[in-house]
Design a protein around this nucleic acid. Structure first.
Lengths: 210, 210
DNA sequence: GTCTATACCCTGATAGAC
DNA sequence: GTCTATCAGGGTATAGAC
């Protein structure tokens, strides 16, 4: 290792990493749009601008490419939702912010919307990917909410975990029904109305204490 | 029309209808298990016990067969959930019954579970089927709940439609996460705990009035 | 490492005997 | 109406030139 040890680390690695990036970016576009079975490796190679054999040299096979892609997207989705700058304010404000962040990050992002659809679609054929999504996105979401509920006894919530499911689940089902199953066109229900009722619901629990 | 007008109506029609039934039953098993793209017409013909050509003579093509099958299942799902013998009792009991019926009919029925998964999977390729599902199952469910909330002002619910979404959506997301996305194995949350909190939540709204 | 060309399989759909 | 046999097309994956 004579001359440029940094270029040996920073130059060629990014070179091959860049190809992988290029393939993944193309593959993401096709898989998210078409689903697993309808996606052909020809289409991916065309979209990524590389030959088919190049894909097979970087990834084992179609399944390997798909798994790598879903894992990356799932982690990105998690970070996008939860690694926001620290939220603050009283419960009524903070909880609404959390809900708004989720809706903005998922419902308004075609990629994460398609990811959710794809995870559900392939939950039978790729159970490990569905479990990864559940572990990272859903479980973390519930945990954060649950811990918040538990650490604020003044809210009067008996079962924080169950309430976290109801709160987060209302958002998930809103995304699925309204954005994926065309509920937007068929049953109008604005986000503000949903969030108003959701907040109202959480807050009125405190009246159970006396 | 001499001898047996009844047999002319009841005999030959069921004969061809029976073939369609046979095809549909076989097709349902394969499509629900494999999804649309992974299902081959060869597999369907084998499962139904008829030749491929027979399928094509009864249905236009693979899409036609799929649409007929999903429409039938969606209607059956709706009837299974909502056409139950009239429920009765005070709100705290009736609402819990409604929720239990939904969970029993959908979460415990592999066919309707797979139907929901399939509707979401193919929502892009068959939007009309997703809309049918949303119209019949989801919209009706919300309407029934919404009307019930609206006709019981003593519950103190400000926005019955939004509350209906939260109530029904919590059940839908419970089914999707726990039953489809392996939440059962990863995040334990019993139905009783969910229902307890859900009922608690609805009931505590009434304390907003005074 | 990357491309072109190809092997081999399975798909949806059809033609023709009965 | 129902079956057997078949077609044309596109799928994944690989071989070999460079």
């Amino acid at each position: 290792m004579p001359k440029t040890p940094t270029s040996q680390i920073e130059n060629p690695l990014p070179a091959i990493a860049q190809k992988q990036e290029q393939i993944l970016q193309g593959a993401i576009r096709v898989f998210l749009k078409e689903g697993y079975a309808r996606t052909s490796m020809d289409r991916v190679s065309a979209e990524a601008g590389v030959s088919k054999q190049t894909i097979y040299s970087h990834f084992q096979d179609k399944e390997g490419l798909f798994k790598a892609l879903i894992e990356r997207l799932t982690l990105a989705c998690f970070q996008s939702i939860f690694c926001v700058e620290k939220l603050h304010g009283e419960p009524a404000i903070l909880l609404r912010q959390v809900a708004e962040v989720y809706l903005t990050k998922v419902a308004d992002n075609p990629d994460y919307l398609a990811l959710l659809r794809l995870i559900i679609s392939e939950s039978q054929n790729f159970p490990e990917l569905a479990k990864l999504y559940t572990q990272t996105v859903v479980k973390r979401g519930r945990q954060i909410l649950s811990q918040y509920f538990a650490s604020h006894p003044e809210l009067g919530i008996n079962d924080p975990e169950a309430m976290a499911h109801i709160f987060f689940g209302s958002l998930v089902s809103y995304v699925i029904v309204q954005e994926i199953l065309y509920g937007k066109e068929l049953i109008s229900l604005s986000r503000d109305r949903l969030l108003d009722s959701l907040m109202n619901m959480v807050m009125s629990q405190s009246r159970n204490i006396e």
